[in-house]
Structures are given as structure tokens and as C-alpha cells.
């Protein structure tokens, strides 16, 4: 199978506090997944699950403690801040933070073209920028000479996507791209990802906590919890028929915009987050309604259940 990006056994350990305290938090723990060409892959979970750290490592903004990342057959070079060049681009969560508020937005477009030597003349640069802006429903005239504060959040996010497209990347890493965009405008961003996939063959790594948009736009999804991928498969299987108890809880906690599906029953919340990171066995064992003795002592294996990868004893051999 063709793999555009492959992440293998990725681990990131943060040391907290002073050198002496030795409190170490494994933000990403032995995570493996791959992204196919022209695919929207979601990495979903709550804050602190390690999804953004994974994205930052893929983008080269953070160094992995262990593990490898392969992009189109090329391995990540060690200690090189930006190991990819044009192949992977990113858009960020806060549309108002993506661009320097003191600089006109168009500068980023011209700089990208200049730095990657993608245009030989100013006229060609403008033509190219205009083309990419058209792909997101804007034009160069909308942008010329304007500062970030003159746009709405939704517009800025589309501008951000257009900038990412300038280098014709194969993969766009989108870290919570719609969480700060108004609900009424979200679909315009999310639909763009579909369009990029279908028309340009661009893959998207969609980092999100919003499972409803993930369901709408993504092909496959990995659910992360406290550094682990607990469940991975197609969105249909994972979100419509969740197997891992954590996915089930997450899915049931989503406030659905539908008065016929109101929340039923009560839920239990974790007292503190640190306990869960430091847990020996399955990190969800403290809140899991099905927790067994073994869950508390040994991390569960990853098993395949009907094409879905689940990390839970409920589905491993002796119990299933």
C-alpha cells in the first residue's frame, strides 16, 4: 500500500519541573500510524492527549524522543529543524495568530514564493498567488495591502490554507483548524479540505477534538488518550460503532445539535490528569466501567477487530 507519511513508534517525553524532581510525562507514547495519498486522516482526542505534540513533531517544531517519521520514502534527518521543505505545510488553530498583526498578509505569500524559488517574476508571483486564493474562494484583490485585523476569522483561515497551498504540498497538517471559527462558517473551511483531497490529491492530517466535523470530513481516524492511540480505523467504524470504552465515552459526551439526542445518564470525570499519565497499565482504567485487574498493571495490546485497531483487553484473545 502506498503511504505518504508514516509515523513509527513515535515517543515524546517531557521532563517537568527541575532536573531533580524527575517528573516525566510521556506526552506521546509509542504512536504509529500512516497517511495515504489523497486522504483526510484525523488525530482526535481531548486536550493533553498528545495530538498536537505529534503534529509539532511531524512539522519539525519539536524533536521526538524516539521513533521515526518517513515522508514519501525519505526519513527525517536528525537535528534538522525543517526536514521537509515543500512537501508538508500546516495551518493553525488561531486564525488571528497565524499572521503577524503588524504586517500585511500578502507578504507571507510573496516570501513563500521567493524562499522556495517558485516564481521568476513579480507578475508570475501574483498570478500564482491569485490562483491559490481562487482555490479557497478569494482573489488577490481581496488580500492586497490588507492586515490580518481587516479579515474575519473564517477568511483568515482560508487565506492560511491558500498560503499553505503555494508550495503544492502533498500533505497539510491542520491543527484544530475550525475550533476558533464560527459554527456558521466552519463548513466552508471543512469543505475546502474535501475539495483539496478530491481535486488536488492533497492529504490532510486533521488534528481535532471535534468528532462531529471529523466524521463529516475524514476518511480514517485515530483516537488518542493520554499519549496512546486507543482506537484507529475508518470514521464510520470508529465513530458510529466505537469499541474502546474511552471512544464510547467521548462519543457519548459530544453535545449533538439535535434535540432528540440529548445526553442520557451521568458521567464520571478524572480527578487529576497527572494520575492518568503516570498510570502503569491502561491509562483509562481509573474511569473505565469495564476495568479488570490486568488493566491496572499491564498496558493492553493493540488488536485488530473487524479492520479497526483497538488497544483494549476487552478485545484481546483470552477475553473476547
Amino acid at each position: 500500500m502506498d503511504k505518504l507519511l508514516e509515523v513509527e513508534n513515535l515517543t515524546k517525553v517531557f521532563a517537568l519541573g527541575s532536573v531533580l524532581s524527575k517528573l516525566r510525562i510521556t506526552a506521546v507514547d509509542n504512536v504509529s500510524f500512516f497517511i495515504k495519498p489523497a486522504e483526510i486522516f484525523a488525530l482526535a482526542g481531548e486536550s493533553g492527549c498528545g495530538k498536537s505534540t505529534t503534529a509539532r513533531i511531524i512539522l519539525g517544531f519539536e524533536h521526538a524522543t524516539a521513533g521515526t517519521i518517513t515522508h514519501s520514502g525519505k526519513k527525517e534527518a536528525k537535528n534538522e529543524r525543517v526536514w521537509f521543505t515543500e512537501g508538508i505545510q500546516a495551518i493553525f488553530q488561531d486564525p488571528f495568530g497565524t499572521f503577524n498583526p503588524l504586517r500585511p498578509v500578502e507578504r507571507y505569500f510573496f516570501e513563500t514564493l521567493r524562499n522556495y524559488k517558485l516564481a521568476s517574476s513579480p507578475a508570475e508571483a501574483v498570478r500564482r498567488i491569485d490562483a491559490k486564493l481562487h482555490a479557497v474562494g478569494l482573489s488577490y484583490e481581496d488580500l492586497a495591502g490588507k492586515y490580518p485585523s481587516e479579515f474575519s476569522g473564517g477568511q483568515l483561515q482560508r487565506i492560511s490554507i491558500a498560503r499553505a497551498l503555494l508550495t503544492d504540498p502533498q500533505l497539510i497538517v491542520a491543527d484544530e483548524p475550525v475550533s476558533m471559527v464560527d459554527a456558521s462558517l466552519r463548513m466552508s473551511i471543512v469543505n475546502l479540505f474535501k475539495k483539496l483531497r478530491d481535486e488536488l490529491g492533497v492529504s490532510v492530517l486533521y488534528i481535532t477534538h471535534d468528532l462531529a466535523t471529523a466524521y463529516y470530513v475524514c476518511d480514517r481516524i485515530a483516537i488518542m488518550f493520554r499519549g496512546d492511540i486507543v482506537e484507529m480505523g475508518t470514521v464510520e467504524e470508529v465513530l458510529m460503532n466505537p469499541r474502546h470504552p474511552y471512544t464510547q465515552l467521548l462519543r457519548a459526551s459530544i453535545p449533538e445539535a439535535d434535540t432528540t439526542h440529548r445526553w442520557q445518564g451521568e458521567i464520571r470525570l478524572a480527578d487529576t490528569e497527572q494520575d492518568e499519565y503516570l498510570r502503569q497499565g491502561c491509562r483509562f482504567a481509573g474511569r473505565c466501567p469495564h476495568a479488570m485487574e490486568i488493566c491496572r498493571s499491564t498496558p493492553p495490546p493493540t488488536v485488530q477487530v473487524e479492520g479497526v485497531q483497538v488497544r483494549c483487553y476487552l478485545y484481546s484473545e483470552p477475553f473476547s
Binding site: L59, A90, G97, R103, Y108, N115, R163, A164
Partner: peptide, 19 residues
């Protein structure tokens, strides 16, 4: 975040600092 945008736009350290 705009620091990251600039890096993704291919800016080197000098460009980043000045621009």
C-alpha cells in the same frame, strides 16, 4: 503562531528576525 507560519514560508533565521 506566526513564527511557525514564517518558518513554513521558508524563512531563515535572519528573515524571521527581521521581518
Amino acid at each position: 503562531e506566526f513564527t511557525q507560519t514564517s518558518i513554513l514560508s521558508g524563512a531563515n533565521t535572519l528573515g524571521l528576525v527581521f521581518n
